[in-house]
């Protein structure tokens, strides 16, 4: 069997690029104080947003982000064929509870913090394969619900090590459509699971950098592109430490990405002022930075070709306690005007 869309080992070039019709992002109060605040559609004043628990606050963020992206696109919701969403909470409750009233066929996804690009990849294949005309993709995370599930109670007086990262409170959502004027998803490279043997759950950037490097270099090799093909390359949430490691790893394999590469977790917060240690993390990090910042840059034609690589750490609190290492994953999607 010949795969006509497949190039190289694991990359795919779409026969007809998939259009990104609209985006929406909602973030929390700490992100509001960050350097990207003017790019987000809405910034919340508090983490509860009028809800009783952080879990339902996160669901509300998902719900409102999806509603916002649908109303911005002008597409009636009955013409949206799929809703692809995921988050970090157990059994993806933030997405499924947030979207239970949307009346759109729902496919829940989990790829840890790589969920956003994962959903864009699945959405593109659905559209490219003529299964759908419009697909809405969404990913979210919430600092408080993530801390509660993965780390310690918020009021516990502990110190965060310098390598720890700050889970972004927020969600980003995009609508992918068959037709439109761009920006377009032109190619993607789904990643393999890469385990670098890192066991420190407070150093996610280092655990995921190996997967990011694998996907990045595979993407270049498969497509025959090189780093200068893109105006900008963004990873999801490697943070300051992971970003440095990825630059080193890529240069050791002969790819220099120093000049046009950045990390959404690094961009999200001001390291000096906001005391977020190694930077932002979580599904909502790349989701909101793409939906807010990167998409606007594309619209203003400041970037013409962008590679988004969402990175995820495929662990939970049980696996950490059992002394397992942290496998990483990274999915790349190439977006062009």
């Amino acid at each position: 069997m010949i795969f006509i869309k497949k190039v190289g080992n694991q990359s795919y070039i779409l026969s007809k690029p998939v259009n990104i019709t609209s985006t929406a992002s909602i973030v929390g109060p700490k992100e509001k104080e960050g350097p990207l605040h003017q790019f987000f559609d809405q910034c919340l004043e508090d983490e509860f947003w009028g809800e009783k628990s952080w879990e339902s606050a996160e669901s509300k963020i998902v719900k409102e982000t999806v509603n916002m992206v649908i109303s911005k696109s002008g597409i009636p919701s009955r013409e949206i064929d799929f809703c692809l969403a995921g988050d970090l909470l157990n059994q993806c409750i933030a997405s499924s509870f947030g979207l239970r009233e949307t009346n759109i066929p729902f496919i829940g996804l989990f790829g840890a913090c790589s969920t956003f690009v994962e959903s864009m990849i699945v959405g593109s294949t659905l559209i490219d394969g003529d299964f759908a005309n419009n697909v809405v993709c969404c990913a979210s995370s919430h600092f408080c619900s993530a801390e509660k599930q993965f780390r310690f109670p918020l009021e516990l007086g502990n110190q965060r090590p310098p390598s720890s990262q700050w889970t972004v409170t927020g969600a980003g959502s995009v609508i992918l459509s068959k037709d439109g004027n761009g920006p377009f998803i032109s190619a993607f490279t789904p990643g393999k699971i890469v385990d670098m043997g890192i066991k420190d759950a407070n150093n996610m950037g280092a655990a995921m950098a190996g997967a990011a490097e694998d996907t990045l270099i595979t993407h270049f090799k498969d497509t025959g592109r090189n780093p200068s093909y893109y105006d900008a390359i963004f990873t999801g949430d490697l943070g300051h430490i992971g970003k440095d490691i990825l630059v080193d790893l890529a240069s050791s394999k002969g790819y220099n990405i120093k000049s046009n590469y950045n990390d959404c977790g690094v961009l999200m917060f001001d390291k000096q002022k906001q005391d977020t240690h190694s930077g932002g993390s979580g599904c909502g990090c790349i989701a909101s930075v793409f939906s807010g910042y990167v998409y606007k840059m594309l619209q203003e034609k400041k970037y013409k070709k962008v590679l988004m690589i969402a990175t995820g750490a495929l662990m939970n609190s049980t696996s950490t306690q059992q002394g397992e290492s942290i496998p990483g994953i990274a999915h790349a999607v190439s977006i062009e005007l």
Binding site: P29, K30, E47, F143, C144, P153, L154, E155, D275
Partner: peptide
């Protein structure tokens, strides 16, 4: 127990 009755956790601002 008393504290949990009267108080709600808040995000670390710093």
């Amino acid at each position: 127990y008393i504290a949990s009755l009267v108080s709600k956790p808040k995000i670390k601002k710093q």
